[in-house]
Design a protein around this nucleic acid. Structure first.
Length: 265
DNA sequence: AACATTTGACCTCT
DNA sequence: AGAGGTCAAATGTT
């Protein structure tokens, strides 16, 4: 199990690059060169706890079905942290999440944050995700997605939460050379981290990102804090790209004076 | 006023 | 018993 999450020493070197990922259920999809890979684990029963019994175990006769289905169709994704500021916030994935908890995990230096779909209450969207910074690589997040998004399936549900349609597609195609999957078919299965070093797109970035900040996801409630969906993808890519080249610079951006004694070089 | 985040407590699983 | 995961109240922001 751990081996699975700790096998990036080699890949990390390329973490500056990101690609469009598609989580295929039924098999792990790894993008070594992309710097981001997904582990899809779709085992047997993907039983999610019953939302009906949300009562805090107070004295309810029915116990909380809070079973630990660790292998219940969960998808583990690794994404590089944003090097231009909010390093504590994982890159926007196109959905709006609401944080509902945070815990320190044994063996990890950083706490794990628990998010659930913002529309869970509205559409019973069981989608959840856990974000944890790799103690091995503070610049990399391990995001575990659990459950599928049913929020955009509903008629009343918010439209497709695409971070930056234009940019995403452009970059995705430019990078990988394959158009984004049909949302209708892939639904919440695709991760839209269409970022990439762009090989040559590393320089100009702010220009395009400005307007179409991934915020697009803003279905309605998410627009308030704008924390979950408001990350200029291009900038992200740019930042990451730059980080890959001039790590020192980006490093200071994130940990100004808090860098580990492990000097760069 | 509404909604999201924070934080502590509680509960379940291993 | 410990660790992990979730809930709920309080608080903060828009």
């Amino acid at each position: 199990m751990e081996t699975l999450l700790h096998q990036t020493p080699g890949v990390m070197a390329e973490r500056s690059a990101l690609g469009l990922i598609e989580s295929k259920v039924g098999g792990g999809l790894q993008m070594g060169s992309g710097g981001l890979f997904i582990e899809s684990s779709s085992r047997s029963d993907a039983q999610a706890m019953d939302p009906s019994d949300s009562g805090r175990g107070s004295s309810s006769s029915s116990k909380r079905p809070r079973k630990r289905n660790d292998d219940a169709g969960k998808r583990t994704v690794r994404v590089p942290a944003q090097l231009f500021g909010n390093t504590e916030i994982p890159p926007e994935d196109g959905f709006t999440w609401r944080k509902y908890g945070q815990k320190e995990i044994l063996g990890s230096k950083f706490p794990r944050a628990y998010y659930r779909c913002t529309h869970q209450n509205l559409y019973h969207c069981p989608a959840k995700k856990q974000v944890q910074r790799l103690d091995d690589d503070p610049f990399q997040f391990e995001v575990v997605y659990r459950g599928e998004h049913t929020c955009h399936m509903s008629d009343t549900a918010p439209s497709f939460p695409r971070p930056a349609p234009g940019i995403a597609q452009e970059m995705a195609q430019a990078m990988i050379g394959q158009p984004p999957p049909s949302a209708a078919t892939s639904l919440g299965r695709w991760v839209d981290f269409s970022l990439g070093p762009g090989g040559s797109a590393g320089s100009s970035s702010s220009s395009m990102a400005a307007g179409s900040s991934g915020g697009a996801a803003g279905p309605s409630t998410g627009g308030r804090y704008g924390k979950e969906a408001d990350y200029p993808i291009a900038e992200l890519a740019d930042a990451m790209f730059n980080s890959g080249s001039s790590s020192t610079n980006s490093m200071e951006l994130i940990f100004p004076g808090d860098q580990p004694s492990d000097k760069n070089n």
